[in-house]
Write a protein that binds this DNA or RNA. Structure first.
Lengths: 226, 226
DNA sequence: AAAATAAAGTGAGACTTATCACATCTTGAA
DNA sequence: TTCAAGATGTGATAAGTCTCACTTTATTTT
């Protein structure tokens, strides 16, 4: 296994920033860095797992196979941990993670991770902060998904890519229409229809997956009204 | 303020079980026990908050005012913490908590709570475990709400009360029809219709809020198919 | 107990969205 | 290039759910 030098890592998680040089060296010895190409699965629902996954570069979807369809629970960007809840609480993963772009992650042994939690209070404090944020996001999502109609949810997704992921009005949607549907709880057909409608209304400029947001305010209006 | 003797509390959280006698005495000095009657609000969305709330007895709904309706995010039973994410990450509460039955909670000062996290690794470990469980539940909820039609969601809710809350086939539904709708993302009318349908089909025996589950298997079938 | 208020049940029509069917467009492989 | 496989767009129809209107039943209040 390639040994990492975590002391030199400049994309540390807020928790890892709490580790001293000694601890970072230990971390490096129990940690491996792996590259994933777009589309590759990082870990799979129902598989056994004993690693915490730290997302360093790229973009990842967290998804669950439901009774009738695949559902994208959330899209994570670095720096963040991917597998804390599923690894900590269960023997098998409750969800899958798949790279949406070329991605770099570090696999961290669970024992090691637990050791830091029990050994470094500032580390565990930051983990708690991250878990709390994540739970609030998830509540927020629940409300949005339940109370908004499809145009509102599509608008939300576009604003999410614009603001949280790409920080630019122009970007390539990192999802197929089907995946987009899995992300906003609809069919691929409905996504197509709403997107072309937004295009026709000059709210967005659309060409395949290439998109430019022309009228952020009207997108927000859709988001707010439902 | 009434000082509590947490050393004698026999409904400690799994985190509090990790505290020694000294720590429990300190906890008791920074903690107050409050009773809430059915229907009373424990804490309110958008209010400032500096307490962690520990649910000791009773039953509580966690709810959020969305763009068009009030939504019940989850129903919590003891022993559990109610306000960790909302208190930890934000200045103001992102959700409300309301007693569904007569309820006893302990308010714990946030500073105290943070002190234990930083001072006792076993304590913070248990908090992390609880947060992880809660996040997995929340993912599970997301899938259920999105992929199931109303009969499936109503069936889920009934099985939830049966299995997680009352552990009995006979119980009183702790929600009005409107609240039930807010819990399973529908209108009160749809809840009424589905419940009477289940009654007619002899899946349940229903009289107002009093209910008996007659055919658990058929409820599960609804849940699985959607 | 009577009146007022709130909660619950139910039918009908409107609206949203899913599904099916098919045409078109891309993309990668042979 | 040519073909195959997958992704996308779009219309028509069907299904599910919401909303409105009204009635009936509980629960509170006076």
């Amino acid at each position: 296994m390639k040994v990492l030098d975590c002391t030199k890592c400049d994309i540390k998680s807020s928790a890892a920033k709490m580790l001293n040089v000694e601890e970072l060296k230990i971390l490096g010895n129990h940690c491996s860095e792996v590259n994933f190409k777009k589309g590759e699965i990082i870990f799979k629902q129902n598989a056994l797992s004993s690693n915490i996954v730290y997302l360093k570069k790229g973009l990842v979807k967290i998804h669950i196979a439901g009774p009738s369809a695949e559902q994208i629970i959330k899209i994570s960007k670095p720096p963040t941990y991917l597998g804390i809840p599923t690894t900590f609480d269960e023997k098998t993963n409750r969800y899958s993670a798949t790279a949406l772009e070329d991605t770099v992650v570090c696999f961290i042994g669970l024992d090691m991770f637990k050791q830091f939690i029990k050994g470094n209070p500032n580390f565990s404090y930051e983990i708690i902060v991250e878990l709390c944020k994540s739970e609030l996001d998830s509540f927020n999502n629940t409300v949005n998904r339940a109370q908004k109609k499809i145009p509102g949810r599509v608008a939300d997704a576009l604003l999410f890519f614009n603001r949280e992921i790409y920080e630019s009005k122009e970007f390539y949607i990192p999802l197929s229409r089907l995946e987009f549907g899995n992300f906003v709880d609809t069919s691929r057909e409905s996504v197509s229809r709403i997107l072309t409608e937004f295009h026709t209304d000059r709210i967005i400029q659309l060409d395949g997956r290439k998109i430019e947001i022309l009228d952020e305010q009207r997108l927000e209006a859709f988001s707010k009204r439902g």
